[in-house]
Structure formats: structure tokens, C-alpha cells
Design a protein around this nucleic acid. Structure first.
Length: 204
DNA sequence: AGAGTGATCATG
DNA sequence: ATGATCACTCTC
């Protein structure tokens, strides 16, 4: 059976298509010899230069967002609040700076490794639903950082990539406003957040 | 509801 | 140069 890795053309489509098709697919990272994996259950689309909530709003092309201007299938990892990393997948083509933020994942492999990376103190108990139920949580559980992973090509990397695991989600997708973008005025309320309903691993 | 934490951004 | 902000998480 051929490798089910997701290839370039999947990512080069428009972000509203990709944000839904990513639900049910599998993210895999192999970092420090530790392979971890899980099913994507919550995503958000960022629509580029017109989207007030997007880092590329107004055509911004600062150092931080260079990855978003690259080809679909590029990783965009940014650092925020002085302590958190968030992981995005760039969509469309070079010069069309759109992306999908991965917000929550259902762990399937390497759960002990995830728990170690997520644990801040000894003896702190973490349920499986606490491991990847938020964008910065999943970045930490998968070992993703700006310095190591921003700009990585997910279609060729050996350490970070996606696999097809379900062509169409069994449950129909739910959608609603994105989280933490109240500043974005008329863009704050648009239903650009998608998730698998009834899945206990979604954020909040 | 408030704190933590420092890179990043728009001003100037 | 400086000050405000932040696609968040944890604990109270």
C-alpha cells in the first residue's frame, strides 16, 4: 500500500475547502526519535490580505509571516504571548498568504511522549483530552517550535507531515466564529472555525 | 477573571 | 527607540 501522505495539490486549494478537509486527517511528527500522531478535530481558516484577523491582513510581509507567502503545504509556526507556539498549514499558492490553524487533535500515537512534553510539574495529572485540546497545547505535544519548524515543507519533510486517514468525516462538520479574534471587527463573527461535533478533544 | 511572558508590530 | 498588543493557557 502506498504511503498515504498528503501531497501538494491538497494544500493548494482555497482555505475554506482545506479547513474542512483537514478534519479527520492525521498529523505525524518524529522529533527527538519520538513519533507522535493524532487525528485533526478542530481547525480555523485565515483568509489572507482581506481578513482582519489574519497575520497577513493588509498585505503585511514582515519577517514573522514570510512562511505564509510560500506555497501551499508550508508550515507556518509562530510564537505568541511570550510562551506559546501555534502551528498553521499554508494554503493556496505563493503570493496568496492564506492558512489553516490547527486548534485541536485527538491523540492516537505517542501519548506518553505527549504527556511528558505537556507536563509542567511532576505528578500533575493530565487527561488525554488535555494533551492537544488547543493550538498551543498541540504544538507543545507534537514538539513543534518556530525555530525548528517554521517554513518546513510538509510534503517532503521526514519529521513533520500529514497522512490521509479519512477522506470524508463520518460526522458532518460544525462551524462557528474563530477564537480570540474579537479585535477583527466585521471578520470576528464569520464562521471560519470548524470541528468534529461530539469529539471530546476539541478546545474548551 | 487575572497573571504570565517576550517576540512582534506600528508609531515616531 | 518605545509602548501596546497578542490566532493562548493555567489557576484562582
Amino acid at each position: 500500500m502506498p504511503t498515504p501522505r498528503i501531497t501538494r495539490s491538497f494544500y493548494q486549494r482555497d482555505p475554506i475547502t482545506v479547513v474542512k478537509d483537514l478534519l479527520g486527517q492525521t498529523l505525524v511528527s518524529t522529533i527527538d526519535d519520538q513519533r507522535v500522531a493524532g487525528i485533526i478535530v478542530e481547525t480555523e481558516a485565515y483568509l489572507g490580505t482581506q481578513d482582519r484577523a489574519a497575520h497577513t491582513y493588509g498585505g503585511r510581509q514582515t519577517d514573522r509571516v514570510q512562511s505564509m507567502w510560500q506555497d501551499g503545504g508550508t508550515a507556518y509556526v509562530y510564537f505568541t504571548y511570550g510562551m506559546h507556539h501555534c502551528f498553521n498549514i499554508v494554503t493556496q499558492h505563493p503570493g496568496e498568504p492564506t492558512a489553516v490553524l490547527l486548534r485541536a487533535i485527538e491523540p492516537t500515537e505517542g501519548i506518553d511522549t505527549m504527556r511528558e512534553r505537556r507536563r509542567k510539574r511532576q505528578n500533575q495529572k493530565l487527561r488525554d483530552t488535555d494533551l492537544c485540546s488547543g493550538p498551543a497545547k498541540l504544538a507543545q505535544a507534537f514538539g513543534l517550535t518556530k525555530s525548528a519548524h517554521d517554513g518546513l515543507d510538509l510534503t517532503t519533510s521526514d519529521t513533520l507531515y500529514l497522512e490521509h486517514s479519512r477522506s470524508a468525516p463520518l460526522n458532518h462538520t460544525h462551524s462557528g466564529p474563530r477564537i480570540g479574534v474579537a479585535y477583527a471587527k466585521d471578520w470576528a463573527d464569520k464562521p471560519l472555525r470548524f470541528w468534529l461535533p461530539e469529539n471530546p478533544h476539541v478546545s474548551r
